[in-house]
């Protein structure tokens, strides 16, 4: 799970978290017992739909301003160490 979230936990963290997460999962397990058969899941609390934007070009960001925030930039681009493989 940690790898999927790109987190690395120290042994100490792992010890501490495991107990805490188990306790939480025990608590939230109460929802498992609830009968919600046939109820639709709520993704949005309010029943609204279809917000659309006209296809009109707007402002773009200044590249230098954006790259000034980048940890490493080169040639107008964001530089990263070797990627190793294609996207999954």
């Amino acid at each position: 799970m940690a790898a999927l979230a790109r987190l690395e936990l120290t042994d100490e963290e792992l010890d501490r978290f495991t107990g805490q997460l188990d306790e939480l999962l025990d608590h939230v397990a109460e929802v498992e017992a609830l009968d919600v058969e046939g109820l639709p899941p709520t993704m949005h609390a309010l029943p609204i739909a279809n917000l659309l934007r006209p296809d009109t070009p707007g402002e773009v960001l200044d590249r230098d301003e954006v790259l000034s925030q980048a940890p490493v930039a080169e040639n107008g681009q964001f530089r990263v160490p070797p990627i190793l493989g294609e996207a999954p």
Partner: peptide
């Protein structure tokens, strides 16, 4: 991709 020293993102 596998042998590159680094990569640039656009």
């Amino acid at each position: 991709i596998h042998e590159a020293g680094y990569s640039l993102v656009d």
